[in-house]
Amino acid sequence: MLILYYWIKVLTFADGPLQRPDGRKSKTKVLRIYRVCNSGLDASVMKNGENSFFNRALSMYVDGFKSMTVGRKLWALILIKLAIMFLVFRLFFFPDILHENYDTDAQRAQAVRSALASGNEI
């Protein structure tokens, strides 16, 4: 949810105000979408007529996430899994050996050359 929240926030503000169908820029709409995010992802704050592709896509995601049943468990599973993978395995047990031990590509190449050039003494 947090990731989605920031994703929406970046989308709505990083690109500046959204274009209305008539071409005018509407800060109000941006603020409403922002309210959608801040009001616990409640798509109902969007008013009739704001039927742009973006709004429909947004409300599809918002309502979809809100009405999830099994999906909640699955998202929890995915997040736990990703946390274990990246925050535990990657961080503590799976360093990129060459990137950790050497600063430049030339040094890495040299390390591999030394290792592979030792032939069947490996």
Binding site: I78, L98, R108
Partner: peptide, 29 residues
Amino acid sequence: FGINFACGVATGIILEFEFGTNWSNYSWF
């Protein structure tokens, strides 16, 4: 399908971790 997709997603990423740690000569080569 969704349950399987969610359970399987990112299990392949571990293979890439293993390349960098266990198979560094291979990864570079």
